[in-house]
Computed example of a mutant assay.
Amino acid sequence: MTATEILEKLVSFASVVGTPNHDIVAWIRDYLKAHNVEAAVFMGPEGDRSNLFATIGPADVPGYILSGHMDVVQAEAIEWTTAPFQLRRDGEKLFGRGTTDMKGYLAAALAAVPQLAKAKLKRPIHLAFSYDEEAGCRGVPHLIARLPTLCAAPLGAIIGEPSNMRAVLAHKGKAAARLTVRGRAGHSSRPDLGLNAVHAMASVLNAAIEHAENLTHGPFEQAFEPPYSSLQVGTIAGGKAINIIPDLCTLELEARAISGVNPDSLLAPIRQKAQTLRAAGFEIEWEEVSAYPALALPCESALARLLEDMTGQTPIGAVSYGTEAGLFQAAGVDAIICGPGDIGRAHKPDEFILTSELAACQSFIEALGARCAA
């Protein structure tokens, strides 16, 4: 099958983040088996979605991981020109949800499998396909934890997020949380008898806004845009009617941290502020929604030099979006970002990738295989 044909099949699976992914996992496993490559499938704790790991070549020798996620963000059909989970070709453009982020990379890797399988690799190439990356990299930690039992310590992991096939050395870390404040309902004419959860949440919101402003004053890391850590409240909801004292309010916020800063630490002042509401009788629940560390790969590392040599381009210092790369690095595996497509097309209606981008990625992976066979 060509990369385009594989992509057409992958797009047809509506593997939306947070939903079961058995169908796409089973298809990939069967495809690999048809090329004499055995894939291990590991069910996550959710019980209805899995990671997949496969090795081409000797597993007991250090090699390279090709890492990508199988999930995609939601797609509202009304916003699309055509059905989002049916691949549509218009010249060189291939439209469909996940074509760029990031089933195009998976398709290119799978299209390269026949060539890799014939190459008699001396160093292995591993395929590590995860779930629920779009929910804050929830699936891949379970896969990374198994790596010591699956293969020799890897030389590096190439995370195929869309980067126009130019290597990326760094991204910010992220932590996201959901705060729930519970008060006491009542009639609005007697506010003295209730506990207004929305009013209470206002003090937390103000603390978050003030903290976000303070972060703009540094510390700085000029490779990023913006060059400082950041924090924002993304959603807030509470109340049922104008004449009812609201007994419930929820707030979701996230922090993005430059290298060397723990993103969880950026949320700590907001959590501490929320805890002070207990003294007034409110119940507080703080739930971590997602978290992943920053990526910071030195430009002089062997993996960075390899990617620069193979792509013929100097790696980009940093990008604003986050990936699973930081989790691989935190586990002791050098990681770098390099994949087909442009991040500017991701998460939008009529997302697309170019056939030339698929071909370039497949050629890159096959060239990596040639090096591993030399």
Results as ranks from 00 to 15, higher is better:
213 E>Q: 15
46 E>G: 14
110 L>Y: 03
275 Q>F: 01
42 F>W: 10
24 I>H: 02
325 A>V: 08
68 G>Q: 11
61 V>L: 07
371 R>V: 08
86 Q>M: 12
141 P>V: 02
318 A>D: 00
128 A>E: 00
325 A>P: 04
4 T>K: 13
306 L>Y: 05
197 A>K: 08
72 V>E: 04
164 N>I: 15
313 Q>D: 09
287 E>N: 12
242 I>T: 15
288 E>Y: 09
335 A>N: 07
366 E>W: 03
86 Q>C: 13
66 L>I: 14
85 F>I: 06
325 A>I: 10
204 V>Y: 06
361 C>H: 04
124 P>E: 02
340 P>E: 02
146 R>G: 04
65 I>H: 01
239 G>E: 05
373 A>H: 05
72 V>L: 01
102 M>G: 06
26 A>H: 14
16 V>G: 03
151 C>Y: 09
76 E>S: 12
215 L>S: 06
314 T>E: 10
130 S>E: 11
119 A>C: 03
152 A>V: 05
281 G>F: 05
346 A>N: 08
223 A>D: 05
349 P>E: 10
121 L>V: 11
20 P>I: 11
111 A>H: 01
227 P>C: 13
78 I>S: 15
86 Q>R: 15
84 P>M: 13
268 A>G: 04
233 V>S: 07
141 P>Y: 04
354 L>Q: 07
219 P>K: 00
210 E>N: 10
227 P>R: 00
306 L>I: 04
342 D>H: 10
173 G>C: 04
288 E>F: 07
208 A>K: 04
106 L>P: 11
272 Q>D: 15
212 A>E: 10
257 A>G: 09
85 F>N: 03
321 Y>M: 05
101 D>S: 09
310 M>A: 11
138 R>K: 15
209 I>P: 00
153 A>W: 13
39 A>F: 04
249 C>P: 02
253 L>K: 09
244 I>C: 02
368 L>D: 08
88 R>W: 14
125 I>M: 11
354 L>R: 09
250 T>F: 10
130 S>C: 12
235 T>E: 15
216 T>S: 14
214 N>G: 15
87 L>D: 07
256 R>H: 11
113 V>E: 07
175 A>I: 01
153 A>L: 14
245 I>A: 06
222 Q>K: 12
143 L>W: 00
298 P>G: 06
340 P>T: 13
112 A>H: 01
46 E>N: 13
197 A>F: 00
197 A>R: 09
248 L>Y: 12
269 P>H: 03
189 S>G: 09
48 D>C: 12
98 G>C: 03
